[in-house]
Each structure stands twice: as structure tokens, then as C-alpha cells.
């Protein structure tokens, strides 16, 4: 797994040079050296500081969904290149490279799943594919699961980790922010619940659209969450940023999110929330209509 390869660099600083590659990993946050097996047991969180490592989409789905319940939907969507964009590389070539490297079609995986036996609709952004950036495909797939959730009257859960809008699609990626937000407006009007989970890092156009529009917003501990990146801010204001700036705990303190939940408690928290948010949902739209028809007409 490519995920473990990053240990190489961190091992250079440790005396245990003979440790086989992949057995140990350094915490990105506190630099503690962690035993990989132990790390996995702790759902890839640092036992010393609680930092949550970036994990794959599949790992994330395993952590929050009932075992084997995930059923992928909306496969087969791939980015076009609307602008014929070329920087140092062609956008089309970049897409092919990422697809080959990650085995993914695009930067989001969507589908149906169960959490605590309850049907939900799920989207998980994939940071390994172009930094989880939102272009037309991410916007379209997120919009489609919003439609799915609305139509089937199932709670929507979106796990975000993204560098923001994808520059190579310029106006198209910008407009995906409006598109996904407009779709959420309709879903919200239909009283279908949406839980947004923010993980490290979630920035730019994703935070400034669907990720910030959850009925309930949960963040993983110490996740970087913001609109402008810290480096851009630093360059603009030319001063040091406060300790913990743009981290989950900072957002909680400023009233921007509902809670900071460690990975180990995430499924339990989702089950609890769904108990309240999804209790009034009929299982299908048809059923909902039937319910309405059956309710006695009061004159």
C-alpha cells in the first residue's frame, strides 16, 4: 500500500535504520514513531497526540459503515478537459497519471451503505486523487448522491478531505460549488438530513460549499479546515498565525462546527445522530407520499 511508503523519509531521522520499511510510521503532528500494527488497531490515530492520519476511502468506509454494507453507485464518470488546460503538464495527462497511480476514476467515491442497520447515502472524497479537488466529476457525483438521498429519503453523509476547487477546470469547478449547494437546498427543503464530516485537510471550494452545509457538522481532531490555505494567509498578512489556527478545535471554539469526534467514536456518534435526524424519515418517497395521503384531512 502506497500509504505506508511515506515512512521511508521519517525513518531517516531515527536511529533504528534496520527496521523494515512499513513497520513504523512517524506522526505528522508530534513526530512520535508509531508501530504500524498498533496504529492500525487505533484506526490510524497517534497514540501519543491523537493526530488522525489521512487514510484511504476504503479504510474510511470500513470505519463508519456496517461491515460489507457499502454498495458503490455512479461509477464510470471521468473528467473531461473542458478548457484544454495545460500548465507544465496537460490536464488530460495528469488525470491519466492519477488514475493509474490510485486505481481510482476520480476524487470521490459514492454509494449506498448502512450505519447501525440504517440505510444511508454516502460520499467520501479521495485525497489521493489530485488532492481530493472538486472538478465537474466530483460536483456531479456529489449532486447525484444528494438526489439519491432526496429521492430515497435516506440520510446523506459526506466525508470531506480536499484541497478545494480544481484549478484546471476553472469556471466549471467554481460552478460545482453553486451546483452542489443548490442541490442541498432542495434536499433540505424536503427535510432529508445531512451530516458533514470534515477530515484533514478540508479547504477551499469544498469548505465553501457542501462541506459547510451539514445539518450537523463533525470534524476529526486536529484536522486543518478553512477556506484560504494557511500559507496564503501568512503571505497576505505577513505575520505568524496563532497556535492551532484553522484546526478542528479552533473551529469548535469559534462556533463553526458541532463537535470534534475521534475516529474511534465516529460510528457510535453517527448512530446516535441518525436516531434523531432520521427517525421521521419514511423509507421511500412513495411511502412518504402514502403517509401524507393517509393522514386524516382536517377541515
Amino acid at each position: 500500500m502506497s500509504w505506508f511508503k511515506r515512512t521511508k523519509q521519517s525513518l531517516r531521522k531515527t536511529p533504528k535504520k534496520t527496521v523494515p520499511d512499513g513497520l513504523w510510521r512517524k506522526c505528522d503532528y508530534c513526530s512520535e514513531i508509531l508501530y504500524a500494527k498498533e496504529l492500525e488497531k487505533k484506526l490510524w490515530t497517534c497514540s501519543k497526540c491523537g493526530y488522525h492520519f489521512l487514510i484511504s476511502t476504503e479504510q474510511y468506509i470500513d470505519i463508519i459503515c456496517d461491515s460489507g454494507s457499502f454498495q458503490e453507485m455512479h461509477r464510470g464518470l471521468r473528467s473531461g478537459d473542458p478548457l484544454g488546460f495545460k500548465d507544465l503538464k496537460r490536464y488530460g495527462d495528469r488525470l491519466k497519471e492519477y488514475s493509474k497511480k490510485t486505481g481510482k476514476e476520480e476524487a470521490v467515491v459514492t454509494g449506498f451503505a448502512k450505519i447501525g442497520g440504517r440505510d444511508v447515502v454516502l460520499a467520501v472524497l479521495d485525497f489521493s486523487f489530485m488532492g481530493g479537488s472538486m472538478g465537474s466529476v466530483v460536483g456531479e457525483k456529489v449532486s447525484r448522491v444528494i438526489e439519491d438521498a432526496t429521492e430515497h429519503r435516506r440520510p446523506l453523509i459526506i466525508v470531506s478531505r480536499s484541497g478545494g476547487a480544481r484549478m484546471q477546470e476553472s469556471i466549471f469547478s467554481l460552478m460545482q460549488m453553486a451546483k452542489t449547494s443548490a442541490m442541498l437546498a432542495k434536499m433540505s427543503d424536503e427535510r432529508v438530513p445531512y451530516i458533514s464530516i470534515l477530515t484533514n485537510p478540508t479547504t477551499g471550494g469544498v469548505t465553501a460549499s457542501f462541506a459547510s452545509l451539514g445539518d450537523v457538522i463533525i470534524a476529526e481532531p486536529k484536522a486543518l479546515i478553512g477556506f484560504a490555505g494557511p500559507r496564503v494567509i501568512q503571505q497576505t498578512i505577513r505575520q505568524d498565525l496563532p497556535e492551532g489556527f484553522q484546526r478542528s478545535e479552533f473551529l469548535l471554539e469559534h462556533g463553526m462546527i458541532d463537535m470534534v469526534v475521534p475516529r474511534g467514536n465516529l460510528r457510535r456518534t453517527l448512530e446516535q445522530l441518525l436516531e434523531f435526524l432520521a427517525a421521521g424519515l419514511a423509507s421511500t418517497a412513495a411511502e412518504a407520499m402514502k403517509d401524507e395521503e393517509q393522514s386524516p384531512a382536517v377541515s
Partner: peptide, 16 residues
């Protein structure tokens, strides 16, 4: 891109 703008949730304001 400033501290106050982030503290007061510009992402939320735009999304809303």
C-alpha cells in the same frame, strides 16, 4: 485571506 475572515467562518458564509 485573513485571520479574522477565517475565524468568523468565511467558508460558511459563502456556502450559505
Amino acid at each position: 485571506p485573513g485571520i479574522g475572515a477565517e475565524e468568523r467562518g468565511q467558508f460558511e458564509a459563502i456556502a450559505r
